[in-house]
Amino acid sequence: MPTLGSAMKITLNVNGEARSLDVDPRVALLDALRTHLDLTGSKKGCDHGQCGACTVLVNGRRINSCLTLAVMHEGDEITTIEGLGEPGSLSPLQKSFVKHDGYQCGYCTPGQIMSAKGMIAEFNMGWPSNVTDDLGTAPDFTEAEIKERMSGNLCRCSAYPGICHAIREAAPDEGTIEEAAE
């Protein structure tokens, strides 16, 4: 076992790029992204897995990056908000959030968008949620399903109506809804 605070060498695949790091084993994935890789788009709102602002995709699944250690992700594919698009070439979800004012202060926004991205994928894999009536058939992409599945991402500015409008409009362009319907 390494001594407390001594660095461990790891390689993360972040937004399609291999990034090698020497990190203290106590460093959360979120802090590795923000502090060590200068990818500050993922936000720290609670450092407790309670607010969702730190949501990123790990191997395609959404997780709270504050609740997992960087050293546990050797070789994992990590997608952060910076990997979705940038001003001038925004992804459909990002554009839709701007259009529908799916934010105000913007602090929870990267987490909302990454969570929406992961949520759409889960939905299209047929995952049920707490509000799904019938577990035997694929759930419909309803307002209630979106709200339930996005309730792990707090927004104190309370842009929830705009967030839902943005997700509904962008979901078909995120390319997975139709695939699931087939």
Binding site: L39, T40, G41, I81, L84, P87, V98, Y103, G106, T109
Partner: peptide, 21 residues
């Protein structure tokens, strides 16, 4: 009118206090 700083916010490029070095 949509917020002009919106593209920075939705792409994680708006820089908040704890994000400066």
């Amino acid at each position: 009118m949509p917020r002009p700083e919106g593209p920075l916010k939705v792409s994680g490029r708006a820089t908040y206090a704890a994000e400066w070095k």
